[in-house]
Every structure is written in structure tokens, then in C-alpha cells.
């Protein structure tokens, strides 16, 4: 039953198992506003494999959020091809889970109600959704807060609710736009560890945009660094760290230091280029 939650037609159609989950070729995005033309993304080529944890780091204004929005179909590509699970992205996609920097919860619903909102809007079976919501809340440490209203929750807890909502319909791709950017440092580290653990447990494809170097390297199986004006991919790093990562040992490991040092260098020069 759970497998039917995402539209089955798209899943079966023309998506061989070895094809990339997301395939972007020659992507260009330009915005026109107030007589000015902004070249947000230029010549992006990117393939994201199923089960990959891809992080995208870059200075603000490099178009990293735009790239994520293009994958979800929330922003239209000006030129180039974007396919998700073998089907071209035209308009908002239903087979993704999206997490914004702000939790964007419904103020009038409690934690469980906010998570089940996903199921109600999609018309998923009620009993199944409820069971899955409970399991997700347990996994993200929300047990005991099922009936708490958003205003009773801290920022970190609100973002957990937002994450559960994004996972409820078992999307193939989880897209996260600086999800922990508004949290304090300690909560952010905890959320990183939990997200990594959830990814290990589920094996889903995650694309996460961040401007934190540590986050980009710690979480990723592959990290991409972007530069601004026009937004483009400068370099990509396969992260050669163990699958299961304890937080502090990972941050102190030579590989982490090597990669994050290099990423920081790139971000620094990208920022100076402005």
C-alpha cells in the first residue's frame, strides 16, 4: 500500500533502475525584474544518483536555492533539460518532499495535524498516514509532542515537524533549502546527526542546500560548491568518509579537514570574485 502513495504511472514509466534520480543538462535560469536581467544559473550539468546525499554549498546569491527549486518544479528553467525519475520537470512535482528554511507550519494545527496535512492534501489513506506519522515522529524525536501547537515548539522541534511532513508520502527525493539555517549552533549539530541517521536508515535521495561548510561536508556523500554571477558549479567533491558518522570524530578526521579546508578556500575565492 505504501508504494502506491506516489503516482504509480510516473514511477514505472521510462525510469530504468540505473538511470539517475535527477538529471540536469545545460540548465540556464534568468530572472527579469524591474527592467534588470539576473542570470541566476548558467550551464548547470548535474546527475544525482538514487540514494545519494548531495549537498550544495555556495555564497548567498549563487543560485543554489534556485537550483533546488528547479528540481522541484517551483522555478522554471529558462533553457536546458531537467528530468526527475526519468520524466521531464514541468510544473511543481508531487514526487518530492520539500523543507524550507522556515518550518512553514499551519499555525492552527498541532504537530501531528501538520504532518497529516501532507496526507490530506494528497488524499492518502487515513489510517496508513496516521501510522506513518507516528513512526516518523518517533524517528525524529517528536514523541510526546504530537499534540503541541507550533507556537509551543522551539525552532528545532518545528523543523522536525516540517521534516516529518516532507517524508510522510515517502518521496523519492527529499529537497532541503537551508533547513537548519535559522537554528542555533547546538540544535543545528543535533539536527545534522539525526538527518544523517535518517538518511542511513531510509536510503532515500537527499539534496540539501547550505552555506555551512561543516554541514555540507559532514552530511554529504557528494558535495558541490557553487559560485555566483552567474550561478555555476565550481567543483564537486566525493566525500570519502565512513557511511555511519559519529559527529565529533568525523569533524576531527583528516579527510573531513582536507575537504572542508578546500571547500572553504573555494567559497572564499568565490566571495572575493564578487
Amino acid at each position: 500500500m505504501a508504494a502506491e502513495t506516489v503516482d504509480g504511472a510516473a514511477r514505472g514509466a521510462g525510469a530504468p533502475s540505473d538511470a539517475p534520480m535527477v538529471d540536469i543538462r545545460g540548465l540556464d535560469v534568468t530572472f527579469h525584474s524591474k527592467g534588470r536581467t539576473v542570470h541566476a544559473l548558467s550551464g548547470i550539468d548535474l546527475a544525482i544518483e538514487p540514494g545519494e546525499f548531495l549537498t550544495i554549498a555556495g555564497p548567498s546569491g549563487c543560485g543554489k536555492s534556485t537550483l533546488l527549486r528547479v528540481i522541484a518544479g517551483l522555478t522554471e528553467a529558462t533553457a536546458g533539460e531537467v528530468t526527475l525519475r526519468g520524466t521531464p520537470v514541468e510544473g511543481a512535482r508531487r514526487d518530492v518532499g520539500f523543507v524550507f528554511q522556515r518550518a512553514a507550519l499551519l499555525d492552527w494545527r498541532n504537530a501531528r495535524g501538520n504532518i497529516l496535512f501532507q496526507a490530506e492534501m494528497r488524499g492518502l489513506p487515513r489510517a496508513w498516514a496516521r501510522e506513518r506519522a507516528d513512526a516518523l515522529m518517533e524517528m525524529t524525536g517528536l514523541t510526546g509532542f504530537e499534540n503541541a501547537m507550533p507556537y509551543e515548539l522551539s525552532g528545532g522541534m518545528q523543523q522536525r515537524v516540517s521534516l516529518c511532513r516532507a517524508l510522510l508520502h515517502e518521496p523519492d527525493v527529499l529537497l532541503m533549502d537551508e533547513p537548519f539555517g535559522a537554528l542555533d549552533a547546538l540544535t543545528r549539530e543535533n539536527m545534522n546527526v539525526e538527518l544523517r541517521r535518517i538518511w542511513e536508515a531510509t536510503g532515500m535521495t537527499v539534496v540539501l542546500v547550505t552555506h555551512s561548510v561543516a554541514e555540507a561536508v559532514y552530511l554529504a556523500s557528494r558535495a558541490i560548491v557553487m559560485g555566483p554571477r552567474p550561478g555555476r558549479i565550481i567543483e564537486e567533491f566525493p566525500i570519502d568518509l565512513p557511511g555511519h558518522r559519529e559527529y565529533e570524530p568525523t569533524l576531527e578526521s583528516p579527510e573531513f579537514r582536507r575537504v572542508s579546508g578546500r571547500v572553504r578556500e573555494l567559497l572564499g575565492s568565490a566571495a572575493h570574485a564578487e
Binding site: 522536525r160 543535533n190 536508515a201
Partner: peptide
């Protein structure tokens, strides 16, 4: 995607209510 039931490894930080 298989959802495994697992208790959180970390105490949920900052549970303000």
C-alpha cells in the same frame, strides 16, 4: 523507502514547551 523504527540516538535537544 523503508522506514525503520528506531529510537533517537540523541536526546531531543531544546524541548521547550
Amino acid at each position: 523507502t523503508e522506514l525503520t523504527r528506531q529510537t533517537p540516538t540523541l536526546p531531543s535537544a531544546r524541548l521547550v514547551r
